[in-house]
């Protein structure tokens, strides 16, 4: 139930974006990926659910084992992989439909609930899980775009949870939110780690410090250091990590 990255290299056209990545992302924990912008954090995340395939001129080498199965190459069923790995992106991105349909979207796509009642139940359950149910109760048929940004982001999380993934990828999921929504979403992630393996790209060291069980520090497309949060934050082995943590560069 863990993700194992072995000798992963990603090229986009002539650019070597990720260089020889080796990582273990342990299950049912929060792993935060930190590093200055442009270091390849997002690319790594997008490789894990193969959303990177949509990028023009991309080439993947190496292995990424999800539950022991290599997901690189054309063999594995990508849509099934993506169902198992949820994504919460930087900006909330509600689909052009109602709140209910947003959450139900993935279930319908994957034909998960045969009976309509089961679908309604699933939507409710996941809206409750992100604490949105009480706020939108009675107007779940209204367009999702009318929700506030913070609510939208929680909706997107509920939408991801509804397809029953085992992993959740979050790409700076709180950076577009106001401080209060940001805190709510952050707390949600902490509460979810009992059931899900969470991999988070974050732009704020403080956030990583608060919630990470493991930390991966990346710089210029390489993993400089990775390990338990305590160790990386308090006893970094690498000079680069020390510099980054002390704010020498950002």
């Amino acid at each position: 139930m863990a993700i194992e990255v072995q000798n992963l290299n990603v090229h986009i056209k002539d650019n070597h974006i990720l260089k020889n990545i080796n990582l273990t992302l342990p299950e049912k924990q929060i792993t935060c990926i930190i590093g200055p912008s442009g270091c390849g954090k997002s690319t790594l995340l997008r490789t894990l659910n193969r959303l990177i395939d949509g990028t023009e001129g991309v080439r993947l080498d190496g292995k990424v084992l999800v539950d022991g199965q290599d997901i690189i190459g054309s063999g594995p069923e990508i849509t099934e992989l993506r169902r198992r790995i949820g994504l919460v992106s930087q900006r909330p991105c509600p689909l052009p439909m109602s709140i209910f349909d947003n959450v139900a979207y993935g279930c319908r796509i994957n034909k998960m609930h045969k009976r309509h009642k089961a679908l309604i139940y699933a939507v409710q359950k996941n809206l409750k899980a992100v604490g949105l149910w009480d706020e939108v109760r009675g107007r779940v048929r209204t367009p999702a775009a009318r929700l506030s940004i913070g609510q939208q982001q929680r909706l997107c999380l509920a939408r991801s949870l509804a397809v029953e993934p085992q992993y959740i990828l979050a790409d700076e999921a709180t950076s577009a939110l106001d401080p209060i929504s940001s805190k709510t979403v952050e707390d949600l992630f902490v509460s979810l780690k009992n059931d899900y393996t969470i991999i988070m790209v974050t732009h704020t060291l403080r956030q990583a410090l608060r919630i990470a069980d493991n930390v991966v520090f990346m710089y210029l497309g390489e993993v400089v250091e990775s390990g338990p949060a305590q160790q990386v934050f308090h006893h970094p082995q690498q000079e680069l990590t020390q510099k980054y943590l002390s704010g020498a560069f950002s």
Binding site: N49, R82, L87, C93, L95, P96, I109, C156
Partner: peptide, 25 residues
């Protein structure tokens, strides 16, 4: 926007499903 397509793809939708249910809609 591409993000909308990616949101759909990330939930396990195929490209056609994304085109039909998100783009066309």
């Amino acid at each position: 926007p591409i993000e909308l397509r990616e949101a759909s793809l990330a939930l396990g939708a195929t490209r056609w499903q994304t085109a039909k249910k998100v783009v066309l809609r």
